[in-house]
Amino acid sequence: MSTQEWGTTVVSGHRRAEGREAVAAVDPGGPDHTLALELVRVTEAAAIAAGRWAGRGERGSGRLAATGAMRELIMSVPMRGVVVVGEQEATPALAKGEGVGYGDGPACDVGIGVGDAALSSARDVPHSLAAIAVAERGALFDPSAVRSMQKLAVGPDCAGVVDIRLPVVENLRAVATAKDVPVTDVVVGVLNRPWHADLVHEIRRAGARVHPLEGGDLAGAVAVARPESRVDVVVGTGGAAEGVLAAAALSCLGGSLQVRLRPEGAGRGDRGEVLHTGDLVRGGSVLFCATGVTGSELLTGVEHRPGRIATQSIVLCSRPRSVRMVRSERADTGWREQRAEPTRASS
């Protein structure tokens, strides 16, 4: 059995955003901070399982391996969880509606993500984060009927000054004013996809800098609320499931996520409903854990050293509001797990 050694843990707090971006306080019987360090074991295992497939050119294998590792460990977590944001695209495991946890502890909604930053086999990055969000039962928005989301994510210092319904240039000016910098110093994260060509042109025409988000927008959306991040704001259209996970993280950090929904079957010009952080995650007790698979704006990736594996994770709690950066090392059990082909679900 591998051993695990907890490394440096840095804890800092953030002020709760005021107004409609604030998360409403509800019954305190939901998940608490003691559950968070149980969950980080789950994201670590998923990240390590996925990381073993990076660089091997077998698209989807890392995602399947991560889902299997996550499911095995999450069943031992002391909670009565139901998956609301799941992985049904890759495998029936951890799909919407599945019960997780060993049936004791708080009743929770669970969101999981092991597919963020999925790229083509040519780029060969299975995903950048393995993530879990947990909130009170009924708190997480169900994204299953939504094809995608147009997103606008900012940190606590800009939570009350942006509006997704406004032109991007106006929001960039508002961000610059809130940060007391010129627009030319504002760095905008945009998912690097063909459909964002016009948006990138608009951002650059406004004078701001574009930071391409290569794999997925979850890491970038969370990073905007971290003081050391080089990304000030994230805009553009991405996955609906990642939007709910990002909202959970930002609700713990005091940041803001605004989204415009694009339901299944919506046309290109359809302008969907606008939701805010508190609409996507309604509970007052929220946890978010993520471990890096490959390096991203938020976390470093899994590092293989002689006989050891190192990971970096972020653990966020809304009550009490806290941020923990966890550096973990464990013994490497060798190549046996890496050489085992993930079992694909039969159709």
Rank of each mutant, 00 (worst) to 15 (best):
C317I: 00
D104H: 10
C252L: 06
V114A: 15
R63C: 10
E21N: 08
A178R: 06
R56H: 09
S318R: 14
R226A: 04
P31A: 09
K96G: 08
Q338H: 10
F288W: 08
A36T: 04
G307Q: 13
S121D: 14
G51I: 11
T333H: 08
V169M: 07
S120K: 05
E87R: 00
G160S: 14
P78A: 13
V188T: 13
V162T: 15
S322C: 09
S144M: 07
G284W: 12
L316D: 00
A66C: 06
V110W: 03
L35A: 06
E228D: 15
C289E: 10
A221V: 02
G155F: 13
V134G: 09
L287C: 11
N192C: 10
V10L: 09
G265E: 12
L119T: 15
G189H: 06
A107F: 05
T343M: 06
G97N: 06
R59F: 12
C252A: 10
V326D: 01
G238M: 05
G239C: 05
I132V: 15
G236T: 07
S313L: 01
R271Q: 15
C158P: 01
S76Y: 13
G292C: 05
L39V: 07
V146I: 15
A178S: 14
V231S: 07
V40C: 00
T184P: 00
R193S: 13
D270W: 05
F141Q: 08
R324I: 02
R147Q: 15
E44H: 03
E264R: 10
V293P: 00
T3C: 05
L129K: 02
G68L: 05
L275W: 03
A241F: 00
D198I: 03
E44T: 04
Q88N: 03
G238S: 15
A130R: 01
T277R: 04
R209G: 00
T177R: 14
R147A: 15
I48F: 02
R56K: 12
Q338P: 00
Q150N: 14
A49M: 09
A153M: 11
L199T: 09
D270F: 11
L119Y: 02
A66E: 04
V259R: 04
I309F: 04
E214S: 08
D142N: 14
L37W: 03
V84F: 04
I203D: 11
Q150G: 10
G307Y: 13
A93M: 06
H196K: 01
L316R: 01
A49G: 06
A225I: 08
K96D: 10
L64P: 01
L199D: 14
R344W: 06
T184A: 15
A176N: 09
S128E: 13
C317L: 01
S2D: 11
R268S: 13
R205V: 13
E58T: 13
R71P: 00
R16T: 11
E89V: 07
T177V: 13
E202Y: 02
G267N: 09
G207L: 07
V234Q: 10
W6I: 04
P227E: 15
T67R: 01
S313N: 04
G301L: 09
G60R: 08
V82R: 14
A249I: 04
A95Q: 02
P342G: 07
V224I: 09
G7L: 07
P263F: 05
